[in-house]
Design a binder for these strands. Structure first.
Lengths: 233, 233
DNA sequence: CCCCACAGTGACGAATGTGTCACATGGGAA
DNA sequence: TTCCCATGTGACACATTCGTCACTGTGGGG
């Protein structure tokens, strides 16, 4: 899950973006005044900033320049939004070092995808040999999974599968995605191999296996939350 | 300087892009047929690919899928070009994992800036999961070893062994150390397993196997230098 | 030059990992 | 409620990987 800071004057737009981001499993903060950009960025350390150029207080371009002037915020990716459509304006934003640039009106779905595309590239940096997430720990060096300190040996395939699932615990990973990432299948192949490996993974993980959640009709997800349990009334 | 592969049917466009890229200090390769995409990407290992969707031979979307299906090309950023302007099409490209998407007609300057924006981000990352040392490359994610661009599949044990050896190419790794690091043996065990795996590793590595050097009485070392060769007088 | 301990090699059987299939199960739409 | 289809499950055959061992090759001290 990533934290996204949205800076836009129009509440409609902010809300729309917010909604779509949350659907993708991102946390979303919204502010409307250009003067709040730097303080918010410093406080919240967002993973990405969506910045409208038309802002009260301090205009977007100036806000952007300030972000880039400070080493603490310099590396945060920025996607600019604007109502202007002429090419010269688009270039202006990119030239300054924006990571992307969208003109209104835009499809919120497209924005979501562009955000995903950028995060996909920048998130990788966190790729240490151990991924720690709560009581789960993925030891890339020894291809082991630790649950509450207990080590569990995994085979190569099992490990790759779990690694993909744990890379983003907010997202549901489609069957096609998993088959591509783990097995390298390019086109949709009808195979039960994935199912079998999910089963083996769940078996090996024991209690932790409960966190490998089926999303019927779509794929699988590694859920950090305690999985829902049917409770008697 | 980065190497960019441009895949476009129209020579005008290719030339235009080429010109602008060279002005930015990038090397530029142009091809026109979709079928050449994979071979070129494998041979040239470009830093970024500009891909037109309308191509003879094999259409751009299929070419893109192939790029993403192969671990050797999966991580190369791709910017898609297309004449279509509807949002649904733009999303299609991004959804598949393209890093950016431009619709014709576009400003070559904007393309250049988008390329710069993406390279700026990806250059830093340089895949932590890959250890690059000269013409040798260890792909931790896919458990592969690349020698002069050629991929070599390794088994789990082989990979671990090679990883330990390559972690420090200056040091000689003792048998005890290797048995501990790779096999987890704590005390000195008399076993020929290590020898056998060294043999298998050398076989698989082919030419690169020469760099796995025996240090008699002590252990093994991965030597970056071209191994000494007995030369007749 | 002669040893011989250490390293290389090929072969083999056992263990493990993997993909596929047939059948069981169960969620949810009609 | 019924039915269908996506998913779960157990079994199996095949492929890969692994460790061991016996034998061979060899470097360097004596």
């Amino acid at each position: 899950m990533s934290k996204i800071l949205v800076v836009d004057d129009e509440p409609d737009i902010s809300e729309l973006i917010s909604l779509h981001m949350m659907r993708e499993g991102h946390e979303c903060l919204c502010i409307t005044n250009g003067l709040e950009v730097m303080p918010s960025a410093l406080n919240e350390q967002p993973d990405l900033i969506v910045l409208d150029l038309m802002l009260p207080g301090l205009d977007g371009l100036s806000s952007f320049k300030r972000l880039r002037a400070d080493s603490r915020t310099r590396s945060i990716p920025v996607i600019m939004l604007t109502a202007k459509t002429q090419t010269t304006d688009r270039i202006n934003g990119l030239e300054l070092g924006a990571d992307d640039y969208l003109t209104k009106p835009f499809s919120p779905r497209e924005l979501a995808l562009r955000i995903t595309a950028i995060l996909r590239r920048t998130k990788k940096v966190t790729h240490v040999s151990e991924v720690k997430t709560g009581e789960f720990l993925l030891d890339r060096k020894n291809m082991k999974f630790f649950y509450k300190g207990q080590p569990i040996d995994l085979t190569t395939t099992e490990f790759k599968l779990l690694a993909v699932l744990m890379e983003n615990t907010a997202a549901v990973h489609t069957r096609a995605e998993l088959l591509r990432e783990v097995w390298g299948y390019s086109d949709d192949v009808a195979t039960r191999t994935l199912d079998t490996h999910i089963k083996r993974l769940r078996e090996k993980l024991g209690d932790a296996g409960k966190h490998v959640v089926t999303v019927r009709g779509t794929g699988y997800q590694f859920s950090m939350e305690a999985p829902a349990v049917a409770v008697a009334a």
